[in-house]
Every structure is written in C-alpha cells, then in structure tokens.
Write a protein that binds this DNA or RNA. Structure first.
Length: 815
RNA sequence: GCCGGGAUGGCGGAAUUGGCAGACGCACUAGGUUCAGGACCUAGCGCCCGCAAGGGUAUAGGGGUUCAAAUCCCCUUCCCGGCACCA
C-alpha cells in the first residue's frame, strides 16, 4: 500500500539524468537564468539549507514547462576558514576536508531531485576556478582599483587575520564560531577601491525595482552618502591646514574648538618637541590599545595640543584637541567642534569648560548658551553669524558653502560611510594574491599566462601566527621576478572569500573555458540573472554589494554588457528549529539524508513549501510532515482508485452537476500558475489541497472528475516531481512531465457563473442571494426585500439608501 | 536615535484597486471503522449567550475617514532585522 519512495524517486531521478532533461541549452532562444546562492560546504546539508534549493527548483521546473531555456546551476564557495580550523584540529588537509564535504553534500542534494545542470558545477577552491579569481584581481589592479596601503585595519585575534569592514558586526568578528572582539592594527594590506563606485552603486539601486526594499535600504544605509561642505582651517604657526567635512556649515560661527583623531598623521608635526608632546603621545598610545567598542562606550575625552586653528569665516582662533571620538576613517579625521549644535561636541565642551556659542535658534524661540542642557541639533535660523545672520539652515548652509568656495577655503562636498574593501587575509585556505615583490622592480603583478598562482599542497602547519601560513613555505614564497628575472618573493596573503563569490555567477555561463573567465557571447546570452534567490538579508551589505561592484567593473572594462548582475532578487527566510536557526553547531539540524530516507524527497519538499511563505522564517515542525505525508497518500489513492476514468483531455461536455467541479479545476489551474510566478508556494499547495478535497467529494466519477485528476497530477509536478511523474506513468503518460508543456486553464470556466451576492444592513451581513448570469440592481433589491431575514431587520426602520457593488454586495443603510 | 519589516483562532498561516475575516493544513472534540500502526471516513471547531434557529462580539491598543476597514489616515504599545560617536 505504502508507495516505496526510495525506489520511485530513484527511478525518476535516473530517468531525468539519462534523458539529460536539466542540461542547459547550448544556444538559448528564450533564456532564463535562475540562480540560487551557492553554498559553503560545511559538512552535509540539512533541511535548513534545502529550503533555498527546493524553492529555486520549483521555479525552475515551472519555467522549463513554460518553454524557457533555463540555466539553473549549483556550486560551492569552497575557500574559507572552517576548513583550515578543521585542519588544525583534526590534522586533515583543508582541501581533502572541503572536497569530501562537497561530495557528501552533492549526494544529498541529488536525493532531492533538484533540476541542477550538474555539468556546470563549480568549486571555487580548485585551480581552474581560482585562476580566474586571480585574473579578476589583476584586472582590478590594472584599472587602479586594487591598491596596497598601510592602514589601521580590523584584526580578529581569534581568526588571526584582518577582516573587511563588512565582517565586523558590533565590534565583533562576524563568524558565529568566533565572535572575538576586533582590534585595530596598522598593517600594509590590499584594498579594492569600491568607494570609487559608491555613487553608481547607490544610483543603480533606483533601477532595481524588483529587489526587496529592505535590501536596498540596507545598501543605501551602508553606502551612507551625505551631502555637506568642506571647510579649511589653517593651523597657526604650522604649515598645515585641515580640511574638515561638516553637514552643518550653517553652524560655522559656533566653532569653539577642533578635534583630531588620535591616528591623524599630523599629530607629530603639531606637538613634536613641545610641552604637550608627552601627554598627547600617551593619549594616542592609550587610544590605540582600545577596541573600537571600548572607544564608543567610554565618555568623550581628549587632550590639548597647544595648537590653534583659524576659523576661515571670522578669523577666530580655536584650540585643537586630540580626541578619540573622532573617527580616523571618516571625512578627514578632523572635526570642527560646535558645542551648541552637536551632542558630542556639547559633551566634550562641558567636560573641558569650552565656550558654548549659540548660532542657530529654533524657529520660534531663543536658546541661551548659559542654561542649555543639551545641544540643539534641529534646523533653525542663523544668529551671531555676521552677514549670514537671519538665514535659515538650508539657505545658510548654501551661502556659507558658496562663501568658502569663493575664498578658496572649502565648499560643497559629499562624503560616504562606505570604505574601501580590505581583501587581504593572513590565512592559507584562499586564493593567493598574484603579486610578487622584486628587490629591483618592486611590486610586480603576475602575468596572466603564469596564472594560476597555485596554493602549495605540501603544508602541514596551519596554525595562525599573525601572518599567513604561506609565509613559511619557502618553495611558494621564493620566485623570480616576471619583469627582470631576478630574485623575488610572493605575497603571502590570500584573498577574502567574498572575492571568489563576487563573480561566480559568470563562471556558470562557461565553466570549463580555460582561455577566458567566460566567453563574451555567453555573457551576452545569459546575463543578467533573471532571478536570484538568496538565503536571507545578512548578505545585503556584503556579497550583494560586492557582486554588484564586480559587475560594474567588468562592464566598464568591456567584458560584459550588463552593469547590474541580477534583475530580480528574492530573499528567503531561514528555517528555525525550537526557535533557533537550524544549524549543525546548534545541534538542531535534520540532515537531508536522514529525512529523505524516512519520508522521501517529495514529502520533504511539500513540508517546506507548505509551512510558510518562502520569504518568511519557518519553524520546522513534525506536524507539518504529517500533513505532507497525508497529502501524498491521498493523492496516490485518488489516482490508483480511479485510473479507469482519468482523462487527459478537457471533457467534451460538462454535465450540470459537474459544472461546479469543472470550474474549481480551472480556478485551481489559474491560481497555481499565478502563485508559481510570484513565489506564493504555500497558497499554491493550499489550492491543490482544495482541489483534492473537491475531487474526493465529487458526486459523480465522470469525465470532469477524470480530467480533474489529470490536472492535479500536472499541477503537482513542480512541487513534488517524483510523485507527479510516477502518477503520470500510472495513467499511461509518456516520459516525464518536465517534457510536457504547462497546462493552461479554460478561461470560459475560470470564473463561477453562479454568484452569491451578500446582503448587508448597515454593513453587517444578514443574508445571501444566489444568482445566475446577469442581474440588475433592481432585481437584487427586489430579491433582498423579499428575504425574511432581511425583512426582520428592516422592521420599523426607514431605508435611507442602498449601495450595490455588482455581483458582490448589496448594502441597505437604515436610519 | 535613524531606516526597514511585522502583530489575524490552540498552532503554521489565508484574505490588500476597502466588499461574507479565519481559505488550506496541523492540533483538538464527538461518532464510525479498523483495532499492528504517526491508518481511514463523517461531523464540529475564534470568543460570548443559546438545545437550536439566531444574536452579540472579534484582526496588538486607541481615535478617524467610509454605506462598508485586517486592508486607508493619525496616535500608542510590543516584536524582528539593519545602521549608529559618520561630524
């Protein structure tokens, strides 16, 4: 009785593979690039992972049946720290560990019957992939977008490597197994100049209509464009001036001090050899030891330099402090202190008894510097501001900026929160940076022909020591200069894995090409990604910005036409178990293999799809499994018990008693189709349940009924493909439903002809009128006023008016 | 603090150009059937009153617009996510 899901699912997976049904078209005519984010191979996959894959697969299967040439690939983001940490812990080589995980995971994935074109699988840690990651680096280098600089960078003491800004969350390492408090270290590191693309990344968002608003908002936030004004302050007695960024040039007359970040390079010059030197140096030293978090949490303080700056609008001299609330990386690392109109400056001024000068009054009152207890930061009217007094914030800001521009002391400017992307990592398991350092020629890029720069495999010591383990591998480090042939050394660092994932979507288009990362014509055929399906918004300010950046760079360099990688983005909600994200480390993961062995892939798929809308988080529950299991049983029974009457054609005539069922069948076709297009898979399955219930309750087992079962099998196929193909074969269908066109509804019957018009009195439902065909308002009214239930409520009351919404509602308003 | 998203039965969730709130599933209750089952069938199932017919009430809370509000507007509370010493 119980269908053997193992045998059935295997049978159909073999058939699909044998017929090559999921092989991508060589020359797509009607292309659709359907991409789910690739994955890190952390072991074996569990039900939490497979939500993404199942949802992507339902869509792919639907598109195939709609006649699209679908590209639906999968691959592995295979470099990264966990492999190295396992190597340290267990003594397994990272490559071995990673490739074994990939093998295991591939097997599990195949159990789910996903329509991947496995011939296009990519693995980023293999040389034929990372060769092109290195090529990308060289492209950026040649375009001046990759550069090395000494800077204060985020150092994770746990991972013993630097991290990008995007990888520091609340001052702590982003890796859930690490969470170390990040330190600042001054190091010479590689950066990608993503800031040069800040404006285009921002402006591009306006055209990404089909991206979720929250992701776009997060990216805008992250880029953090702010309009303001630069103001140049000369330093008295030194040949230095500070170009300060402010969003409030209208408060310029309120400046009573200046603050410089402790990391500012001019500090030596300001205090060297003075009485202030010792104290300032001590302060700078202390600040350097603090983590970013400690700096934020402590009260604002600073130390005087004994130097003074000149305010360019009124030539006033103001003292210069060193203060660690000033961020070295934002603006120029110097701020003007306006205590009356900035909360931080106010705090600072109170602490050191610096003057507070009101230069902005609220629109309808006056501030008093003596008594005010907090800064007034709202817009207002300029006062005590010389010729600018009387202007409001907006006009004043513009006037001050114009004035400064004219005086050559600043002017309108723009600042970004976004910083350049730090890509060096002091770790082994990543793509080596293709740069050598020659004693004579200096820094030299590895020529394209010499790529890849291969990771040495004969290495056993992965223990981090603050520099890349590669630095100790002499055979790797020692090389010759490509330029002069002399002695040279390689860069010991590897690239952030986010570099690998910034371009992977291009490699799928031409995965075995050893001449180019991707042939131009293939890029033109397939790009942009028509539907990108992502695993949650945690990628919003990381991967999803980086891959847009890479796309724009490749576009500018003439390699691809597209300048945005993905038209549609769909963000999925995570799978929770007992209120926590399902993961192996939390111990609440249900391995795909274990589940599929017990229940089969189709039940796994139905459980996931029906539990919640795809974009929402779903709590895994065994009750959901019960429902899916039951659905499967009933479906099999429905088909097996009625094989003789099932018909693959629309009924030749529709008997009156079956018209309702026929309408239901067509409505379900329309509903499931539209739900498939908009990722509402939970309601699509609800509609299938409804149709099944209707079929089970059908009064006559006639042609309409037989056709209904046929439709049911068809509609089920994107969701539970093995079962659908099996049932299809039991009713003598040929091959797989993947090879069949999508069924379209009979429009003549997509709407019910019998209508129920709701009769309301004062907006409350009191009765219903059944009508067939057209009916006039007068007739509805007549019927309503004949209705006992209506009459009862009308007794003794006057009808004030009536409202009729055709075919829907008749509302009687009474006094 | 700023930005984004939410709040609907015992539970997951339906319903959005404003038009029958609670589709569908799960759980539960009663009856049947089978009793080896996490099997099957029928009926019921927001809450309150009622044997029932029926009536009242109900979409976080409060106000408003409307013949009609889960849906639109204003205020409040709470929850989730992001950003935050960004000058």
């Amino acid at each position: 009785m119980q269908p053997d899901h193992y045998k059935i699912e295997k049978k159909w997976q073999d058939y699909w593979a044998k017929k090559g049904l999921f092989r991508t078209a060589e020359h797509p005519k009607k292309k659709f690039y359907n991409l789910v984010m690739f994955a890190y191979p952390s072991g074996d996959i569990h039900m939490g992972h497979c939500k993404n894959y199942v949802i992507g697969d339902v869509y792919a299967r639907y598109l195939m049946r709609k006649g699209f040439d679908v590209l639906h690939p999968f691959g592995w983001d295979a470099f990264g720290l966990p492999a190295e940490n396992q190597a340290i812990k267990l003594g397994i080589h990272p490559e071995k560990w990673t490739l074994e995980n990939i093998n295991t995971s591939d097997e599990s994935l195949k159990l789910l019957g996903i329509t991947y074109d496995w011939d296009r699988e990519i693995i980023t840690c293999l040389p034929d992939y990372y060769k092109w990651t290195q090529w990308m680096f060289l492209l950026l280098y040649s375009r001046g977008l990759a550069y090395k600089k000494e800077a204060y960078v985020n150092w994770c003491p746990g991972c013993q490597t630097v991290l990008a800004n995007e990888q520091v969350i609340d001052g702590v390492c982003y890796r859930s197994n690490c969470k170390s408090v990040i330190e600042k270290r001054k190091l010479n590191q590689w950066f990608f100049k993503i800031t040069e693309y800040a404006d285009r990344l921002l402006e591009g968002l306006d055209r990404l209509d089909a991206w979720p608003d929250n992701v776009k908002a997060m990216q805008r936030n992250w880029i953090g464009k702010s309009h303001g004004c630069d103001i140049v302050f000369k330093v008295l007695g030194h040949d230095i001036s500070f170009r300060v960024f402010t969003t409030r040039p209208d408060t310029i007359y309120g400046v009573t001090f200046m603050s410089v970040a402790p990391e500012h390079p001019a500090i030596d010059e300001l205090v060297g050899g003075t009485a202030f030197e010792l104290e300032v140096k001590q302060y700078v030293h202390d600040a350097a030891k603090r983590t970013e978090r400690e700096r934020v949490e402590k009260t604002k303080d600073g130390v005087a330099t004994g130097c003074y700056a000149v305010n360019p609008v009124n030539n006033e001299k103001v003292p210069i402090f060193v203060a660690d609330y000033v961020l070295p990386e934002y603006g120029s690392g110097v701020v003007m202190g306006v205590p009356a109109h900035d909360a931080r400056d106010f705090q600072f001024a109170k602490k050191y008894d610096l003057p507070v000068r009101v230069v902005i009054n609220p629109p309808d009152s006056e501030l008093d510097a003596q008594t005010m207890e907090q800064a007034y930061e709202e817009p207002g009217v300029m006062v005590n501001s010389g010729e600018f007094s009387g202007l409001d914030t907006v006009a004043g800001a513009k006037a001050v900026a114009d004035f400064l521009a004219q005086k050559n002391a600043g002017g309108k400017s723009v600042n970004y929160r976004l910083k350049d992307w730090l890509i060096s990592r002091q770790r082994y398991w990543g793509a080596p940076i293709p740069i050598v350092y020659c004693e004579k020629c200096g820094m030299v890029p590895v020529p394209e022909n010499d790529l890849p720069v291969s990771l040495p495999k004969d290495i056993t010591d992965f223990v981090p020591k603050g520099r890349s383990p590669l630095a100790a591998v002499e055979s790797f480090m020692n090389t010759v200069c490509p330029s002069c042939g002399g002695k040279a050394e390689r860069d010991a660092d590897t690239m952030d894995t986010f570099v690998c994932s910034s371009w992977y979507f291009l490699r799928y288009l031409d995965p075995r090409n050893d001449k180019e990362f991707c042939a131009r014509e293939r890029a033109d055929w397939w790009l942009p990604i028509d539907q990108y399906i992502g695993g949650g918004s945690e990628h919003a300010t990381g991967h999803l910005i980086y891959f847009r950046f890479f796309t724009k760079v490749l576009h500018d360099a003439g390699y691809i036409t597209a300048d945005e990688p993905a038209v549609n983005l769909f963000n999925l909600g995570m799978v929770l178990k007992n209120g926590e994200v399902m993961s192996k480390s939390k111990g609440n993961a249900i391995p795909v293999r274990q589940f599929v062995n017990k229940h089969g892939a189709d039940v796994a798929r139905l459980t996931i799809l029906f539990a919640a809308p795809p974009e929402r988080e779903m709590e895994w529950s065994d009750e959901g499994v019960t429902g899916a299991e039951r659905f499967k049983q009933r479906m099999y029974r429905l088909v097996d018990e009625n094989t003789a009457v099932i018909r693959d054609k629309r009924p030749s005539r529709i008997p009156a008693e079956s018209e309702g069922l026929y309408i239901k069948i067509n409505q379900t076709m329309a509903k499931v189709t539209s739900d498939l297009e908009s990722f509402k898979y939970n309601t699509a399955i609800a509609a299938l349940w409804e149709l099944m219930n209707a079929l089970n309750g059908a009064s006559k087992r006639d042609e309409v009924f037989g056709y209904g079962i046929y439709v049911m099998i068809h509609l089920l196929s994107p969701f539970a493909p093995h079962m659908a193909d099996e049932l299809w074969s039991r009713i003598h269908g040929e091959g797989s439903l993947v090879e069949q066109p999508w069924l379209e509804a009979d429009d003549r019957y997509a709407e019910s002809k019998a209508k129920t018009i709701v009769i309301q009195i004062n907006g409350r439902v009191r009765s219903h009128v059944e009508v067939v065909g057209e009916i006039s308002e007068a007739d509805v009214k007549k019927k309503a006023l004949e209705d006992d239930r209506i009459l009862r409520h009308l007794e003794g009351r006057n009808i004030k008016k009536t409202i009729y919404v055709p075919d829907k509602i008749f509302n009687i308003v009474v006094a």
